[in-house]
């Protein structure tokens, strides 16, 4: 028993090292003075010059701003559509179109991105021929595409939360006189809000991060941040990308670590409350 526990524990530690070494190396070399990225210039490092260069890079900043706007729109749209789909799948029992909806919400998760991207572009081209809209590809078509593949993830998150939730809560509200719409907004929505929030974050990240689908449905002048990074990286390593990566990792890490700590704090408080309640009963 002990030896196998040791083996899996070692594997876990090595695996974590494997996951974090590349990220750490990016962070370290973002402070490196040398242009040669991977050769540490001990004489003049650490330096912040790549961060300064990044801050002056119009192209990167413009792309980042576009990516943020698209991600905001896409994640919000995906949350609305994904919540509707999740509610329908988890609460409506068997209805016509259920299998279709279930299939169409899980397929995008595993669909190779090149195929999704190609099919969406061909759709936009066909639509343009047919009804004259959209006029060319750009931010709008990117956002529409992102909503589509992000909503699949939101649906799964919301649906599994709803499946795990006690249906009698909603029945109780209805029993007390609330119509279905009110039941949703007063009871269901507040209770699945954490799932919706994490769905939103997930969608935001996926949209913010997407390269392949975006490449298909983006037009000239609508380069998102991943597209700019990709075109730079494809032709070799550039130190300012290290700086950019460091900033992104920092934001994400603080966000995730903060939310984890907060969640654990909430959990502790809850557990304490439960203990107190039980004690009061004695």
């Amino acid at each position: 028993m002990r030896s196998r526990g040791l083996f899996s524990r070692c594997a876990l530690i090595l695996g974590l090292v494997f996951l974090y070494v590349p990220i750490l190396s990016m962070i370290i070399f973002s402070f490196n003075n040398s242009r040669l990225v991977t050769v540490w210039d001990a004489a003049h490092s650490p330096t912040l010059k790549w961060y300064v260069a990044l801050a002056a890079n119009e192209q990167v900043l413009r792309a980042a701003w576009l990516s943020i706007r698209i991600a905001l729109v896409a994640s919000t749209g995906a949350v609305i559509l994904g919540t509707l789909a999740g509610v329908a799948l988890a609460r409506f029992g068997a209805f016509r179109g259920r299998l279709l909806l279930a299939g169409m919400t899980t397929a995008p998760i595993v669909m190779p991105e090149v195929i999704t991207g190609l099919s969406l572009l061909l759709l936009f081209v066909a639509l343009q021929q047919l009804i004259g809209w959209p006029r060319g590809v750009g931010a709008v078509t990117i956002a529409l595409s992102h909503i589509t593949f992000c909503m699949a993830y939101v649906t799964v998150v919301v649906q599994s939360r709803l499946v795990g939730m006690d249906v009698s809560l909603e029945e109780a509200a209805m029993d007390l006189g609330a119509r279905p719409g009110r039941v949703f907004f007063r009871i269901t929505l507040p209770l699945i809000l954490p799932a919706i929030a994490s769905g939103w974050l997930l969608a935001f990240t996926l949209s913010w991060d997407d390269l392949v689908i975006t490449q298909f449905v983006a037009g000239p002048g609508s380069s998102t941040l991943p597209m700019v990074i990709f075109s730079k990286v494809r032709f070799g390593v550039t130190p300012d990308i290290n700086a950019l990566a460091t900033i992104l990792v920092l934001i994400v890490a603080t966000g995730i670590a903060g939310s984890t700590v907060w969640m654990r704090y909430q959990q502790r408080r809850r557990e304490r409350d439960v203990l107190l309640a039980a004690a009061a009963n004695l």
């Binding site: 006690d166 009698s168 809560l169 029945e171 109780a172 509200a173 029993d175 007390l176 009871i187 209770l191």
Partner: peptide, 10 residues
Amino acid sequence: NMMFQSYALF
């Protein structure tokens, strides 16, 4: 009105 087995308190 109904009292649920799980109580179903919000």
